[in-house]
Design a protein around this nucleic acid. Sequence first.
DNA 1: TTCATGCTTCGACTAGCATCGAAGCATGAA
DNA 2: TTCATGCTTCGATGCTAGTCGAAGCATGAA
Lengths: 237, 237
Amino acid sequence: MKEGPDIAQLGALIGDPARANMLTALMAGGALTASELAAEAGVTIQTASSHLKKLETADLLIQRKQGRHRYFALADDDVGALLETMMGLAARRGLTRTRTGPKDPALRKARVCYNHLAGELGVRLYDGLLASALLSETDGEPVLTPTGRERMIEFGIDIDALETQRRPLCRSCLDWSARRTHLAGSLGQSLLSRFEDLGWARREPASRVVHFTARGETDLLVTFCGQEPGSHTGSGA
Amino acid sequence: MKEGPDIAQLGALIGDPARANMLTALMAGGALTASELAAEAGVTIQTASSHLKKLETADLLIQRKQGRHRYFALADDDVGALLETMMGLAARRGLTRTRTGPKDPALRKARVCYNHLAGELGVRLYDGLLASALLSETDGEPVLTPTGRERMIEFGIDIDALETQRRPLCRSCLDWSARRTHLAGSLGQSLLSRFEDLGWARREPASRVVHFTARGETDLLVTFCGQEPGSHTGSGA
DNA sequence: TTCATGCTTCGACTAGCATCGAAGCATGAA
DNA sequence: TTCATGCTTCGATGCTAGTCGAAGCATGAA
């Protein structure tokens, strides 16, 4: 017997690691280009194109052409709901043993997601902002608190300028680890730029890796995550 | 990148046609043996054993040993819920094009499911019993009506004896087509036996095919499905 | 036009996995 | 014990599908 009932097709579509990575990357709700999804999935752009075609044919994704980019997004909430159901069930079982995300340690530590900081440091930053009440979550969406607003301005972020944009200031973005979030939105983007301007971090060309200097990492943790200065990195702040 | 997030494993498990067939067969809620599941999936028993091991390792199925049989069932309601979600989504998309179930026409027409009649004739019988109000559905479970009870006794079924058993008299069983049901339970079993005793049908050895004679098929449809005698089969009843 | 970018299509390669035959193991019956 | 049944494990085969290189196509910029 070769052909099976419809759930087999659906399962097979989600069952490929590359496609599953793309789908989880899109669970944040935003639309991503084919290139970005390829990077998220860790495959070349040709391979990604093939996968995206299949997902679109099955009506799991929709495509929106914009200039020379093609943005992909989940077709509707049903797809997102199914993915959440599957993630919940998989998490409740022992199925979380295989390492998720990039195998490259540098990629796991800090990388660019779209235009903002992701990876372990991205998650720690987000958690730190929450813990120090610079950010609060209402209805699962991150909101900058008045204190947070002041601190961001002190840090050199032009919040007023960002708020005039149509883009949301804060947005949460589901990380590779798939159960942790990091900060996206225009604030997320500006923070990463600011880290680079301050010399804390440097983006590796033609890659998604973000290299933090030892000093930069310490400063980041001290500034936003309430860590005491003079920790293991040695070069005290 | 070879390993993906957990939903990929889950999807891949459900994504194989043989495994998907087994899971849908178990959605009726009952427990089936490895051999029965192999027949449902249309694979040999060795292949089925391999699949069952994987499903059990992933905690999608549980195994209960009983004598020299091993009964398999869905691990819990979460698994069933996920399968239903997937079936719903798959049905809403165009994903229902591939033929479900056995490719063998004889198997599609009439076969043994566990111990009762399945296939097209099984579904027609169930629909006919409902249409002639011999059976009614309350909360999705079939119940024999008083009229139905009389007719079954007339037909030669010892309803009183069946009712003393612990087994339920009527149960619905999800068919291959996965969106139609047929009659299981002790009544379903007794009806199949009675069909054989009357010479209407004959079970093919070492197979799940049930051969109905032309006369037997007509009699079945006339008796329970309200069909007029003297239809296309020629040998009028 | 010419060039650059973003994506798709084609073709070939390869890895993984489903599949089944044969043998092995366990349970129950005689 | 011996035999039969139900299922698992091992080994080998074959096929599907994911993958990437290279070329083709479309859009936008200069």
